[in-house]
Design a protein around this nucleic acid. Structure first.
Lengths: 227, 227
DNA sequence: TCAAAAGTGTTCAGCCTACACCCATGT
DNA sequence: ACATGGGTGTAGGCTGAACACTTTTGA
């Protein structure tokens, strides 16, 4: 997936069931790889996407009739590419806005929805933003990314505050030049981690608090406890 | 899964790779069913478990070497059976405490861990308790269930309050007799819904609040947005 | 009347939102 | 100067945790 508006990489089917329609990149699982290796390989080989900042399983789609002919079981993934990167994709592939998809093959539209919803949820309670943003960015750039992904205007002020409070933003010391119309130059930040972590454990019914002074922010669950 | 302490139903393998070890119930996917239908069928046919109150996909396990011999791709599920129900399971199957598993076959221990973690997370931010509890229950019974599932003592007081505030508890009007040692008889409750709903959308960066009087509790995401 | 269990009232703290205000830069 | 965009200070609301206190029963 990708941003400005949230986009998905699709390619045009060259074969007959649903020939010509847009479909998610992917392919057959080889006997010597697991599903994640497989999707990474397919993306690298077929559409030359290698800089994935985050990859996670979505779900298995296995309806016997999801594809004409013999049943195909698909394991769907959410894969993220950061905002700056624009991999040179082949002729027959293109990025499409997630909220205005062309006619897609099979159940791929449903899969994209699922991916979008998962991304949205995780932007709230994890540091997943790191996977969408470039190494260094201004808060307003980040605001654009979050807004695009979430589908509504996010306040830069609060974005700043929440991410800071969670210890996710590291000021790099650099500043971006101000635009031609003036304005204070923006400070540049980067994310503190480049792997996904749950930063806002919604754990209600928490275990009794440790009796100490300041309650350390619990960095509870493993990344895909909640998937 | 099941409670008192949290338990999993395992059965002893009768065939040779890992013969005799305990393994999760399951089996091959038939061409005319999807994975969920399949797991429900297997549970019904093989271990006679039919009253599943909740079933959800966990993840695909596809390591080429997870099982000796030709690779087997497994789609793991979390399935819940309410506390009262005690399905008559066959000879070679038994419930095992999740935190003290016997030696299991293949990667089944890891799968059970995942299931446990998922359950724990969802107890916090969804109404998933309904799937563990019987139709009618006292708060302290519910407290036992939550405590067993979460692995630490939950306060009955707060459990009450949180679930009530979320509108999940409906008093049935009935009361349970008090124990032989006396004590106020407990009121009986039931859950307001018997399908899973996200009740505590951790949505930070919420869309701007509707300017109206009382902000309606958003029942945002679809059940498996967050999986 | 006392012990035991259930349930309620109240206080406190953390986190997020909203909004007003101050800061730095180009024209 | 002043417009423009960046950043901080502060107040308010909601929610959960903790704990004291009241209620209802059996012995």
């Amino acid at each position: 997936m990708r941003s400005a508006t949230l986009q998905v990489l699709l390619w045009r089917r060259a074969l007959d069931p649903h020939l010509g329609r847009w479909s998610l990149p992917g392919g057959r699982l080889r006997p010597d790889e697991d599903v994640e290796q497989s999707i990474r390989r397919q993306l690298a080989e077929k559409v030359d996407v290698k800089q994935l900042t985050h990859v996670e399983q979505l779900a298995v789609f296995s309806d016997p009739y999801r594809v004409p002919g013999p049943r195909v079981v698909a394991t769907a993934f959410l894969g993220l590419v950061p905002s700056g990167v624009d991999p040179a994709v082949p002729e027959d592939t293109a990025w499409h806005p997630v909220d205005a998809l062309p006619r897609t093959a099979f159940d791929h539209e449903a899969i994209v929805q699922r991916a979008r919803d998962r991304l949205r949820a995780k932007l709230s309670y994890t540091n997943l933003g790191f996977a969408l943003a470039p190494k260094e960015f201004t808060i307003s750039a980040l605001r654009e990314l979050y807004s695009a992904a979430l589908g509504y205007r996010v306040s830069a002020t609060n974005l700043q505050r929440v991410l800071s409070r969670r210890g996710l933003l590291v000021p790099t010391g650099n500043t971006a030049p101000s635009g031609r119309t003036g304005g204070r130059p923006a400070a540049l930040y980067s994310f503190a981690h480049d792997d996904m972590q749950v930063t806002d454990p919604f754990a209600v019914f928490k275990p009794p608090a440790p009796k100490q002074g300041r309650r350390s922010r619990t960095r509870v669950s493993a990344p895909d406890t909640v998937t």
